[in-house]
């Protein structure tokens, strides 16, 4: 069957020879991650070796020092920034991923290999945490380099945790709000949004000792009337005592 995708495939693979650009790796695993797109993009650039670390900059002819700003290690390359720097190790320990990262580092030489192996072997939650930590480490490096901010390992881990949880909340809530029926959600949101049971929006009890008064209006155009409804609920001890009112205009 013809599709834009198949035409693209044909152009890229059969008409033009791009095989010298292929880099083997577990790319599909990276694109399937349920994390903010900016993180996926960073991981992709990292695995392609495009991140402007100082070693990479010198390769490309930029005159700059090779020192890593965060710990004064003489060579700022990917493997050092993300995995072997003592600061990075501390971050991985705090995130509870050091054992996995260490194992991956022992079995792979290149930074991209380490990431591919981690993405392949970790469970879904840990995988998402791992890539977000990588993003956070790069952010830490940039903050230090450009703003001269010194962050602690705790801050780096916390920043990652916050980013990921906020993104997940926003995506599940947005998904359920756009498709309140729920039945279409899987069709439209497809792969972009994780299939987590969305927290449904529902009525909350008032705090102890407070009265809650819900108000709404309804409009009946056929009889030219507006109806108003107000419901009050008071929470006393652990019992809800509803008092109700209907008002008409």
């Amino acid at each position: 069957m013809y599709s834009v995708k198949s035409a693209y495939r044909l152009c890229m693979e059969d008409l033009v020879d791009t095989s010298h650009l292929h880099k083997p790796g577990f790319w599909s695993g990276i694109w399937k991650l349920k994390v903010p797109p900016k993180i996926k993009n960073l991981i992709w650039r990292m695995c392609r070796g495009c991140l402007p670390t100082r070693v990479r900059l010198q390769d490309k002819g930029v005159q700059c020092s090779l020192h890593y700003v965060s710990c004064d290690h003489p060579l700022e390359n990917l493997i050092h920034v993300f995995f072997s720097c003592p600061f990075a190790q501390q971050v991985w320990r705090l995130a509870g991923l050091w054992a996995a990262v260490y194992h991956a580092m022992m079995t792979n030489v290149a930074a991209s290999g380490v990431v591919f192996s981690l993405v392949q072997n970790l469970g879904s939650d840990l995988r998402h945490r791992m890539v977000t930590i990588i993003w956070s480490l790069w952010k830490h490096r940039n903050n230090k380099l450009w703003q001269n901010e010194n962050e602690t390992a705790v801050v780096v881990v916390d920043c990652a945790r916050k980013l990921l949880s906020e993104w997940m909340d926003a995506n599940t809530a947005a998904g359920s709000a756009r498709h309140p029926s729920g039945s279409h959600a899987s069709v439209h949101t497809g792969s972009a949004i994780p299939h987590v049971q969305a927290p449904s929006i529902r009525w909350q009890r008032p705090q102890l000792g407070r009265l809650k008064c819900n108000i709404n209006a309804a409009f009946a155009s056929t009889v030219n009337r507006t109806g108003l409804g107000a419901v009050s609920v008071m929470l006393m001890a652990h019992m809800c005592c509803p008092a109700l009112g209907v008002l008409r205009q």
Binding site: R202, F219, A220, A230, L247
Partner: peptide, 17 residues
Amino acid sequence: QANEVAHALACEATRSA
């Protein structure tokens, strides 16, 4: 979605005398 009771009551109110 968190205001369903008030909504149902308001709908009922359009029919009440």
